[in-house]
């Protein structure tokens, strides 16, 4: 089979992008090397580590196992898309405040898993957090500070939800 290229229509972080992509590319390769969205990381390239996690239609998904065509016509959010015009997502800020990112290489994937969790419930139990992050390996932190950060961010989100609605 020889290599061919086609046009992929991707909705990433709200932007509609049409790009030429070799047909055998994964979503991860497309994000990183075609769209230059290098925030999403690669640690194993075969589903074992979670570093490449992005949010597809609300669900944390491993971009290294996703053929790029499977991501067409869906809403893709990467770590770059978590922050809004008002500044970083509370999770991003709390990760910094709590020292939840050491080397930071697992962080984008973990943030995507955690953001999807907090979108479901802003006051998850510790066990729910552990379950939600159970597909994201972190080699630096021992996870403790990550839990703290997710909990604090959840609290901030509940407060702002109450305030607005």
């Amino acid at each position: 089979m020889s290599k061919t290229t086609s046009i992929a229509r991707l909705r990433v972080n709200g932007d509609l992008r049409e790009v030429g992509v070799p047909t055998h590319y994964t979503l991860l390769e497309t994000l990183r090397y075609v769209l230059a969205l290098t925030g999403t990381k690669q640690g194993c390239d075969k589903g074992d580590c979670g570093a490449c996690t992005v949010i597809v239609d609300g669900a944390p998904t491993l971009s290294c196992l996703t053929p790029v065509w499977e991501a067409e016509d869906r809403d893709i959010i990467t770590v770059e898309g978590l922050a809004g015009p008002d500044g970083p997502h509370p999770l991003q800020d709390e990760f910094d405040l709590n020292g939840a990112a050491q080397c930071g290489f697992c962080t984008p994937g973990i943030l995507c898993s955690a953001a999807a969790l907090l979108a479901r419930t802003s006051s998850p139990t510790r066990n729910e957090i552990q379950e939600a992050l159970a597909g994201n390996l972190c080699r630096c932190t021992g996870y403790a500070k990550i839990y703290d950060a997710v909990e604090s961010a959840g609290r901030r989100l509940s407060v702002s939800k109450e305030a607005t609605g």
Binding site: G47, G50, L62, S113, E131, G135
Partner: peptide, 9 residues
């Protein structure tokens, strides 16, 4: 099965 992201796919 596997981990959460894998179960989503």
């Amino acid at each position: 099965v596997a981990g959460p992201q894998l179960r989503n796919a």
